Amino acid sequence: MPIGSNARRASLAGFGFIVVGFASIGPAAAQDVAGTWQRDTGASRVRIAKCGDAMCGTLTWLKKTDGPAKVGQRILYDMKPSGDGKWAGSAFNPEDGKTYSGTMTLSGDALTTSGCVMGGLICRSVKWVRAD
């Protein structure tokens, strides 16, 4: 076997390792939002997890259980990556029973969710911190 073929094989093996490493960065980064998040006011907790090819959020705990929001209610739907640390989909507001265009933005252990109407002209944001 020629000497150059061993070096070439080692070089190709290293390249394959690098490609696999970069390929695994995307899915891992998209999963960083998964987990339990507590609203900054302490009023509720939501569990964000994979649902099909997107991320969804379900209420897991409420400080006040006598309001329109209910434990087990899904409030974030079909959130798909839309940039670095960002997802876009739909957000349900239990207070008015309406579903809005929604986004999630992750920055470290802080998450901001937003629901918008009128093509994003009017938005309401909620801040969350990791609870798990």
Rank of each mutant, 00 (worst) to 15 (best):
Y77L: 08
Y77V: 02
R45T: 06
L106K: 11
T113G: 07
K50M: 05
A49I: 02
T58Q: 10
P81L: 06
Y100T: 09
K64N: 15
M55E: 09
C56T: 06
L62R: 15
T36K: 13
N93K: 09
G52E: 11
G72Y: 08
W87G: 01
I75G: 11
L111V: 03
D53M: 05
I48W: 01
L59T: 14
D84Y: 07
K50I: 02
S107R: 10
D78A: 08
V46Y: 00
P94N: 02
R45K: 15
D96G: 06
D78K: 13
M55D: 08
L59V: 15
A49H: 03
T105E: 09
Y100C: 13
L59D: 08
W61G: 12
Q73D: 10
W87I: 02
L62P: 15
K63C: 01
K80S: 10
N93V: 05
S90M: 06
A43L: 11
R45W: 05
Q38S: 13
P94R: 03
D66H: 13
T58C: 08
G97Q: 04
A49W: 00
F92D: 06
R39M: 13
G83D: 04
R74G: 03
V71R: 03
L59M: 09
G35F: 04
F92L: 12
A54Q: 13
K70D: 15
L106W: 00
G108F: 03
T113L: 02
A54M: 05
M55K: 09
S82W: 02
S82C: 10
G67N: 14
R47A: 12
T113A: 08
F92C: 02
G57K: 04
Q73V: 09
T99Y: 02
K63T: 03
M79V: 04
A54E: 13
T99G: 05
A49L: 00
G35L: 07
L62W: 13
W37K: 01
G52T: 08
P68M: 07
G89A: 09
K98S: 06
P68E: 06
L62F: 14
D66F: 01
G89F: 02
L59A: 12
V71T: 14
K70P: 15
T112N: 01
P81G: 12
W87E: 05
T103G: 11
G52K: 12
S90T: 09
S82N: 11
K64F: 15
D53C: 00
Y100H: 03
G57H: 09
F92Q: 05
A43D: 14
T41Y: 01
W61K: 08
G67Y: 10
T58G: 05
G52F: 06
T65H: 10
P81N: 06
K50N: 04
K50F: 01
R74P: 00
G57I: 06
K86T: 11
V71I: 13
T65F: 04
L111K: 00
D53S: 15
R45E: 10
T113D: 03
S82T: 07
